[in-house]
């Protein structure tokens, strides 16, 4: 059977199996076709490929010159032009490691360590000031590397914090339990913006004279604390789904409480909550854009500043479509990873 016959059969089975289904398929198919052809027409056929802002304005299509002009500002913020190769390399490293993470043969502690190393290497590499790298202060980091950095450390910090908080919330030790409940409910009761604001404005007031804590780190810690509280509730859901019999069986064998959690309960609970964990992670990725409130320019922040250029006013659709696609690339990769992990790590093997 050749490709044509096979796709014909597939269509017959899935799209045209009954008259009713055929009508739905034709209607939806023409809507999709119309939308895609409009989009392609706008982005390619009637697009402006070269020229100035005036040429673009005279034309109704997508303004590619704007994107060429502002690409580096959108992607890398105010990072000095002559050192742009550093954030470019960083982003490439992130994407490469992300694709490596899809390979289930690599899953394990080593991969986790690789991510940690990449995070710290990025911090060092963006900052410089050593080994002949020019020093660049963290306030001028921006764009995609900042988003990726906030997200990576945010997740690597928030996930373990969430596990500890969730275990603490179920603890028999009343003080620990109350502290965990208090923390989780307090953080979940306020918006991320106010946590970021407090971390940025209030936190330095408590520091001793002369101690300076970079804005980046203040935002990073605020993120970890905020997402840790959400992760805690996700993990708690998983812990509650494990039957009491599992704990009893582990205890009856003589395992201590920490051993029971580490070897029996958590491995099952964390696998059950892979989908909501990844949802929370995707939320974290998109919430990094809120650092704009404390004047850090992540991907969305640098996009907004690109739109303020008076000679290129009015091309916000182009800019947002572009960053939207970048966000989509990372978030959809995350959910694809989630589906794969769910499949490969399901607790009940059959």
């Amino acid at each position: 059977m050749n490709f044509g016959e096979r796709s014909g059969l597939w269509m017959k089975k899935n799209l045209f199996s009954s008259p009713k289904e055929s009508i739905v398929s034709i209607i939806l198919g023409s809507i999709i076709f119309a939308a895609i052809s409009k989009l392609l027409n706008w982005m390619l056929l009637s697009a402006t490929w070269t020229g100035s802002a005036e040429v673009c304005r005279a034309n109704s299509g997508f303004c590619w010159p704007f994107l060429w002009e502002k690409m580096s500002l959108i992607l890398f913020g105010l990072y000095p032009r002559e050192y742009l190769w550093r954030p470019i390399l960083t982003v490439i490293a992130f994407v490469v490691l992300m694709f490596m993470s899809f390979d289930k043969k690599r899953w394990g502690l080593n991969l986790l360590i690789n991510w940690l190393v990449l995070g710290f290497w990025t911090l060092f590499f963006l900052r410089g000031g050593m080994f002949g790298l020019h020093y660049i202060e963290s306030d001028s980091w921006g764009g995609l590397p900042l988003t990726l950095l906030l997200f990576t450390f945010g997740l690597l910090g928030a996930y373990p914090l969430g596990i500890f908080l969730a275990l603490g919330r179920r603890s028999d030790l009343i003080i620990i339990k109350w502290i965990c409940i208090g923390f989780i409910e307090l953080i979940r009761g306020v918006p991320l913006i106010s946590v970021l604001f407090m971390a940025s404005v209030l936190f330095p007031l408590f520091l001793p004279e002369g101690v300076v804590f970079e804005k980046y780190w203040r935002a990073q810690i605020a993120f970890i604390l905020f997402m840790g509280a959400y992760m805690a509730e996700v993990v708690r859901g998983g812990l509650q789904a494990i039957s009491k019999g599992q704990t009893e069986a582990a205890k009856a064998l003589g395992l201590s409480s920490p051993q029971t959690q580490i070897f029996i309960i958590l491995p099952q609970a964390l696998r059950i909550v892979i989908p909501p964990t990844v949802s929370t992670a995707i939320g974290l990725f998109k919430d990094t854009s809120l650092v704009l409130i404390i004047a850090l320019f992540d991907l969305l922040g640098s996009t907004k500043s690109a739109l303020k250029d008076s000679s290129w006013l009015g091309f916000s659709v182009e800019a947002y479509v572009f960053v939207g696609l970048i966000y989509y690339f990372f978030c959809s990769s995350l959910s694809r990873l989630s589906r794969k992990m769910e499949r490969e790590l399901s607790v009940v093997k059959r």
């Binding site: 039957s243 019999g245 069986a249 009856a252 099952q268 009940v348 093997k349």
Partner: peptide, 8 residues
Amino acid sequence: FQSFNLFP
């Protein structure tokens, strides 16, 4: 146990 409680 009645419900086996093996570690799945």
